[in-house]
């Protein structure tokens, strides 16, 4: 039996932990070969990246682990050279990596502000630019992982403004890359219980009061990302699909 993503190759940035990892695992379950990416050498991300790689290899699939700081254009070039050398193709670019300090915008130091933009805007665009030649060949897909910070205020969450910017990038690219048959969309997650949730837990008083049934499972995000990579979604272009269990539909949550 053929799996839906058999013989395809997905690159998921920031896939050693959290949502990125869940996406990588889910795509592998659908038969996809995986490029795992992480940033920091020698730490827990690296350990987790390689353990995920073992899991995927044991499923009879091929995986490649690449350490990359996406804010460096040179690093990103090397990443895509490795993808080309190993697989000679790319079907899906999943832009999940993000890094940001947790403090209000007005308190950001200049270096934090620059790093915020370097990683979360420039980094993603560098990845897109490098991926285009490969994605043209496969009529591939780009999916960006956004968050509700793109449209709602969250305390100490300057990443939100980068998410808005990227949602705009996604909309524009869906038009400018249409002739190349590359489809571009985003998935905007609500409150997801991942490593980053541990941060929110410390920064947002009262986050524990959010009803348990409003907390999104990372698998729910992963499945929508996969949908956006399957033929069933071929009519969807430049959209950001909100996956938040309806949290953003109501102002006050009484439960």
């Amino acid at each position: 039996m053929n799996l839906p993503l058999q013989d395809k190759v997905a690159l998921i940035t920031g896939s050693s932990r959290g949502i990125g990892r869940a996406i990588a695992q889910h795509f592998a379950n659908l038969g996809c070969n995986i490029v795992i990416n992480y940033t920091k050498a020698g730490g827990s991300s690296e350990t987790q990246a390689f353990s995920l790689s073992d899991t995927i290899n044991n499923m009879g699939l091929k995986s490649l682990v690449v350490r990359t700081d996406i804010s460096s254009k040179e690093d990103v070039k090397t990443l895509f050279e490795k993808v080309k050398d190993t697989f000679n193709r790319l079907d899906f670019l999943i832009l999940n990596a993000a890094r940001a300090p947790f403090k209000p915008i007005e308190k950001l130091f200049e270096r934090e502000l620059r790093q915020l933009v370097d990683v979360n805007l420039f980094g993603n665009i560098f990845c897109i630019q490098q991926a285009i030649p490969l994605l043209k060949e496969t009529q591939g897909k780009i999916v960006f992982i956004s968050s509700l910070g793109s449209r709602f205020y969250n305390p100490s969450y300057p990443l939100g403004m980068m998410k808005s910017a990227m949602e705009t990038v996604i909309r524009d690219l869906s038009c400018s890359l249409a002739n190349d048959k590359i489809s571009v969309n985003a998935v905007c997650g609500g409150i997801v219980k991942t490593d980053s949730f541990k941060v929110l837990r410390q920064m947002w008083e009262g986050i524990d009061k959010i009803p348990e049934d409003m907390i999104v499972d990372e698998q729910e995000i992963a499945e929508v990302v996969a949908f956006l990579c399957l033929p069933a979604s071929r009519g969807i272009r430049g959209q950001t699909i909100v996956v938040d269990r309806g949290m953003s539909n109501q102002i006050i949550h009484f439960r």
Binding site: G42, G43, S44, S45, V199, R201, Q202
Partner: peptide, 20 residues
Amino acid sequence: LIKDLGAESLDFLDINYRLE
């Protein structure tokens, strides 16, 4: 924590949360 045990910034927050 970083050099010998491989902790990263997210790990610090988790450790702190547990201690809290």
